[in-house]
Computed example of a mutant assay.
Amino acid sequence: MSGKNPYLTAQNTLETPRQIEYRLFSSVTRALMDVRPLMGSAHPAEVAKIAYAIGWNRDVWNHLMPEVLDEANRMTKDLKVALINICIFVNKHTDKITQGQSTDVEPLIAINRNIMDGLK
C-alpha cells in the first residue's frame, strides 16, 4: 500500500485552492476560539494548548507570505501590502502573548474571520 491517503487526495482534488485556504483558516480560527477562555492560565496543559493554537496561527500566516510575495501572484499591490502588514501584526501580537504582555486572542480571531469572509 502506498503512503498516500486516498481520502485526502480525493478531497484536495475536489476543492479549489480558495476552499482549502478557507478550511485551513476555519480550523486554526476554531483552535484560537477554543483557547480563548484559557488565556492567562498557568496550568501547564492549558498553556500547551494556547501555545499550540497561537503557534499554528502564526505558522499559517508565515507560510502564506512566500505565496503573497511571489511575482507570479496576480493580487494587486495594495492587497499584497495589506496581507504583509497583517502578517507582521500577527507575529507581533503572537509575540506579546507568548511573552505574557497580552492574553487577548480576539484580534487574531477577528483577522482570520475577515480573511475567511474574503475567501467565501
Rank of each mutant, 00 (worst) to 15 (best):
I54T: 03
A82D: 14
N85T: 09
S26A: 15
G118Q: 05
K80H: 06
D95S: 12
L64P: 00
N73P: 06
V47K: 10
Q19S: 06
A10T: 06
M1P: 10
A110W: 07
L8P: 03
H93E: 04
I111F: 00
E106T: 08
S102I: 01
V28A: 09
I50C: 04
D117M: 14
P6W: 06
P66K: 08
P17H: 01
A51C: 08
A51Y: 12
P6R: 00
P107S: 04
N62W: 09
L14W: 07
H93I: 02
E15R: 10
S2V: 03
E21M: 15
T13Y: 03
R74G: 14
E67L: 15
I109V: 11
E15T: 02
K77L: 15
V81Q: 09
G118T: 01
A72M: 12
I88G: 12
A48S: 11
Y52A: 13
N12R: 01
N12V: 00
K4P: 06
E106I: 01
A42D: 12
V105R: 03
L83W: 02
V47P: 04
I111A: 03
G3Y: 13
M116A: 01
H43N: 13
K92M: 13
T94A: 02
L64G: 10
S41F: 04
P44M: 08
I20F: 03
I84Q: 09
N112G: 06
A10V: 00
N91L: 12
E67F: 15
T29M: 09
D117C: 12
G55S: 08
Y52W: 15
E46S: 13
A72S: 11
M65W: 09
V28K: 00
N73Y: 08
L69S: 11
P37D: 09
K49G: 02
K49E: 15
N114C: 03
T16F: 01
H93L: 05
T13G: 03
T29Y: 03
I20A: 05
N91R: 11
V47M: 14
G55P: 05
A48C: 08
S41K: 06
L69P: 07
N114I: 05
V28G: 08
Q19I: 01
R74H: 13
E67Y: 14
M1Q: 11
R23P: 01
T76P: 08
D70Y: 09
E46M: 12
N112Q: 02
P107Q: 01
T94C: 05
L38N: 05
I50S: 01
Y7I: 14
E15D: 09
S2A: 11
I109L: 06
N12H: 08
L32C: 02
E106Q: 14
T98D: 06
L69T: 07
D95N: 14
K4S: 13
A42P: 05
S2P: 14
R30C: 12
T29C: 11
C87P: 02
R58L: 10
C87E: 07
R18K: 10
